[in-house]
Amino acid sequence: MTETADAPKPDAICELVLQDLAVTRGGRVLFSELNLHLKAGEAVSLTGANGAGKTSLLRVVAGLAQPSAGRLRYLGQAGELDPREAQSHDIHFAGHQDGLKAQATVQSELSFWARWAGGSMAARDAAVQRYGLTPLLGLETRRLSAGQRRRVALARLAAAPRRLWLLDEPMAPLDIATRARFAEEMVGHLAKGGIILAAVHDPLPIPTREVRLVRPVSIPQEAK
């Protein structure tokens, strides 16, 4: 199964293009005319004040919310991909909430999400090893600390190969050792042609391009 983890699928996302994107939340424009072009192997960190729309942008890119204007394009090797197809096959989303069932064990949650995202049990086991989750496997997820929960959530990214990672403050609850571990994971992901779009306040420990979201003042302005 190791070959399949590295070989890109024919419909893999190679580029992400945001064209004049505007996102509205509760009737207010968070940002507009956002242009961004991400290629395979690139990482962008989204910064901006609280409420600037970082999480909303990630949700729009994941297809969980709709932009109020502009276009969102996913390009594969052979050209434009169907957005719904790209979102359901090739995106990992790690949000504020870890999506873990309180009464389920770490083992069963990881197995389920690995299978759900199209991963193999071998990849799951490798992820468990790399994130040092073996001692936690039998625990119910409600017994975990916030940092441990996040570790499980991030191990999910490693358990199924998907090209575009959308991360919302991924480092916040992690301890120093796990931060270093996750930095290595991100570097490895980019080296394999992955793309990372991460909302952060503290800079990520890997080289990234920074995009700052600025709320338009009165007239919608370019949000860089």
Binding site: F93, G99, K101
Partner: peptide
């Protein structure tokens, strides 16, 4: 529950 714990987001992103 899936809605509250974020699981529904991830279920949406499945094939």
């Amino acid at each position: 529950r899936d809605y509250e714990d974020g699981g529904l987001d991830l279920l949406t992103l499945g094939e």
